[in-house]
């Protein structure tokens, strides 16, 4: 189910004016920043549907920008996101696009930092809740509400078995899991949500034990 916690309904605490167009947009930006794993230098927001029609009225642009800058949903700096971005040397642009059959509040964010680039397609589904629909063009869904490991790796036999063994051995419960690959034996991404807060030791253990694991990102947004 999409909504399970009382605080999904009585929350979030946020600056207005719109939970889906402002708070949800901040959360999407937060997720993008965490997926990128470094300070963004260039970011492009392609907005569809209701996002595209009303983004300025709702401050969706400021909210998305605030999100990639790492500000939380209740930050009173959200209205000043453009100045914050300018102060950080972050270049950004907004465009209205047709993304096809997607939720009315959807944005495709392309962000680049000093060393990496990522592309996140995400929707704001109401009440401030968000859902990533695609990561780097792969159909991987996650919300960032639980500690979420994003594992960039090669498609190899036994990869998931090793990951789950390490998680189990370290006392983590897998809440949700998805793996997508570009081709057999090629580049793959696994998204794994766990119930427990992720400790550094887990990340180190995964890195040390799995040679085909190239990179790990942790996504977790309030």
């Amino acid at each position: 189910m999409k909504y399970q916690s009382a605080f999904d309904i009585i929350g979030p605490v946020m600056v207005g004016p719109s939970s889906s167009h402002t708070a949800g947009a901040v959360r999407i930006g937060n997720i993008v920043r965490q997926v990128l794993g470094e300070a963004p230098r260039r970011v492009r927001f392609e907005l569809a549907g209701s996002f595209a029609e009303t983004y300025r009225g709702h401050g969706t642009d400021l909210a998305l920008l605030a999100g990639v800058l790492g500000l939380p949903t209740d930050s009173e700096d959200i209205p000043n996101a453009e100045q914050v971005a300018a102060g950080c040397g972050l270049a950004y642009e907004f465009a209205k696009v047709n993304l096809g059959l997607v939720h009315p509040n959807t944005v495709l964010v392309t962000a680049a930092g000093a060393s990496r680039e990522t592309r996140v397609l995400a929707s704001s589904i109401g009440g401030g809740k968000v859902e990533v629909q695609e990561l780097d063009g792969l159909p991987l869904k996650f919300s960032g509400e639980r500690p979420t490991l994003i594992l960039y790796h090669e498609d190899r036999k036994g990869f998931l078995a090793t990951v789950s063994r390490i998680l189990d051995g370290s006392g983590y419960n897998i809440a949700r899991l998805a793996l997508e690959r570009r081709m057999r034996g090629g580049e793959a991404v696994t998204v794994c949500e766990v119930d427990e807060p992720v400790q550094d030791e887990l990340v180190s253990a995964l890195r040390a034990s799995i040679p085909v694991l190239h990179d790990i990102r942790l996504v977790y947004v309030e």
Binding site: Q4, S5, E131, E145, A175, V221, E222
Partner: peptide
Amino acid sequence: VGGGRGGV
């Protein structure tokens, strides 16, 4: 995270 366990 405020107890949000909801998988989407």
